[in-house]
Computed example of a mutant assay.
Amino acid sequence: MNLQSFYIGDYHAEVTMMLGEGEPSKDGRPAVVICPGGSYMYCSKRESEPVAYRFLEKGYRVFILNYSTIGTMIEKEGRTPSRDELYQIASMVEDDKVLGSEFPNPLIELALTLVFIRENCHEFNVNPDKIGVIGFSAGGHLAASLGVHWNSEWLKEAVGSEPRWFRPNFQVLSYPILNYVLNEEIANERGIGDPKFMSMAARMVFGAEQKPEIVERSIVKDFVNEDTPPTFVWHTLQDKLVFIQNSIEFVEALENNRVPWEFHTFNSGEHGLSLASEITGRVDKRAQQWNGLMFSWLEEIIH
Rank of each mutant, 00 (worst) to 15 (best):
E153P: 03
A158L: 13
G147S: 14
L142E: 08
F136N: 05
A143H: 07
S174R: 02
E153N: 13
I131V: 15
D129L: 14
A143P: 06
W150M: 07
V133P: 09
E157T: 12
G139F: 01
E157A: 15
V172Y: 05
K156W: 11
W154F: 05
V159S: 03
H149Q: 12
P176Y: 04
K130S: 08
F166V: 09
P176I: 02
V148A: 05
D129M: 14
G160P: 03
E157V: 12
S145C: 00
F166Y: 15
F136P: 04
N169R: 12
A143I: 07
S145V: 00
N151K: 13
P168C: 11
I134S: 12
S145H: 03
R164D: 13
A158F: 04
I134L: 14
A138D: 08
S161M: 13
W154Y: 03
H149E: 07
S152E: 14
K130D: 00
H141C: 10
G147T: 01
G147N: 01
R167S: 14
W154Q: 05
I131P: 00
F136M: 06
A138M: 10
W154A: 05
Y175I: 02
G160K: 04
V159A: 04
Q171H: 04
G147I: 00
S145N: 02
S174I: 13
G160F: 02
A138L: 08
A158Q: 12
H141N: 15
R167H: 14
A158H: 04
P168L: 11
G139E: 05
W165T: 13
V133W: 09
G160R: 00
W165E: 13
